[in-house]
Design a binder for these strands. Structure first.
Lengths: 250, 250
DNA sequence: CGGGTGTTTGATCCTTTTCAAACGCGGTGG
DNA sequence: CCACCGCGTTTGAAAAGGATCAAACACCCG
């Protein structure tokens, strides 16, 4: 069956010709639900040609009117919220198959910036039309709700991390999370390339970039990881996981 | 018109007889959308009698199967996530008109605990039926999506707070947030009673309870607030707001 | 080869945690 | 009504963890 082929875990390198979901090998990431071919066609009809962004380009900015949600088709993104006092914090990193823009639904304007950290592509899903279609395809509606809920759960995890963990534990959690997400996309879970700067990691983890760098050095000294700038090799996943089960402040 | 009466801002003390949404003065908080009487009746049909919880009682626990979402009808709740290492953190406080349980949609099991901090009542909304109804009442669907999105935005705000602010700024942000939410419910924005302990505030803000207590004392010394245990009076909202515009780490 | 950017590392300072003790409010039982 | 007890709160002194500032370094790109 073609479905089992689609679900085989292989790295994704979508071809140009596969703009439509029906033929896009990514749909097990962004739309992992059983749909009839007719239903899939209707979803395809929503989604135009993928939009390309160069590294550093903004997909949207805080305050932009909200029209669509996006799926990362290729590349890597960060989202940043800006606080009242001008400070900005990285709210998350999005990789292939993950969604962007869900924050904009509530006020019909985006509440954060989305920036490509490498040359990327996104599929746009016009939201008004998605809502209409969701009414007609229950599985799609259900999937969309789970998606939003997953985002809420993810944020709870980050709050937990920021509220209770020490610097090294935060970094360990971050690395393990990346590892797992890379693995789910068919990439190595132990060797990967960071797309973000130390500063961006620090911002995401609520740490100064110097602290992030020191934590990396410490891990390296302990034989947990091999670090060379943005090249990361996790040498001992188990011990890294155990590093999380430790105290924390409070 | 009865609508304008409903929308007048007055403290809420729902009567027993007002279990149904159509007659419940809370619906401008939980369901602030224009619906025909017929539509409202269909929503009413979803929602049974409110469930009562005594102080300290759990509405649901992490791991419980997800069946329904809830609206606080009276009282005050906290939600807590437990980390892998057994530590727990308060993820949020919910007051009248606010929703609980949205985290459970993604995995069909709750991912946090919800505890009543005082004697409370909630309306249960069976989720499967809500999804069906949402397909048939576009305004309801739209409202529900905004609700989930608002939760995501709220969480982003907390992440920002935890990642970038100093102890006193976190507490100021917390107090101003409570102030605003009380005001929206017709209560005083400057004088209120905290339903949670210092420990719970600290857990929510990523601080030790001692730090919270010290920050309160400092605010009091500066004439920003008058604190007597859980009785809080905000003496200078403007200066408190300005306290937020300050540095922060990083 | 040179400049810009991102990273590492050191020394110091500051914030917050930790541990501990005292306090005060609210409840219970004498 | 008062004494007592438990829990939550306040406060102090010491310690730890990170931030800050600054300098040196390494990589990438033109």
């Amino acid at each position: 069956m073609s479905i089992s082929v689609r679900q085989k875990i292989i790295p994704f390198t979508p071809k140009e010709s596969q703009a439509a979901c029906a033929g896009c090998c990514l749909h097990r990431l962004c739309m992992p639900i059983a749909l009839s071919y007719r239903e899939m066609e209707r979803i395809d009809a929503l989604i135009g040609a993928p939009r390309r962004l160069r590294q550093g380009q903004y997909l949207y900015r805080s305050g932009d009117p909200f029209k669509a949600i996006y799926v990362v088709r290729a590349g890597f993104f960060k989202t940043c919220v800006l606080s009242g006092n001008g400070h900005e914090q990285v709210a998350g990193f999005q990789m292939v198959g993950e969604f962007l823009g869900l924050d904009g639904i509530s006020s019909e304007a985006h509440t954060c910036d989305a920036v490509a950290l490498e040359d990327s592509q996104v599929c746009s899903i016009p939201f008004a039309e998605l809502e209409v279609l969701a009414c007609q395809i229950p599985a799609l509606q259900r999937h969309f709700h789970k998606l939003m809920s997953r985002e809420i759960v993810r944020d709870q995890g980050v709050m937990m991390l920021l509220g209770t963990l020490h610097a090294e534990h935060r970094l360990a959690a971050f690395l393990l999370n990346l590892s797992q997400r890379f693995a789910a996309r068919g990439y190595s879970s132990t060797t990967f390339h960071l797309r973000m700067t130390r500063d961006e990691i620090g911002s995401y983890l609520g740490l100064h970039l110097g602290t992030v760098s020191r934590a990396f050095s410490q891990f390296q000294e302990d034989g947990l990881v091999a670090v060379n700038l943005r090249h990361i090799q996790l040498l001992d996943l188990d011990r890294l996981r155990k590093a999380l089960g430790r105290p924390g402040p409070h």
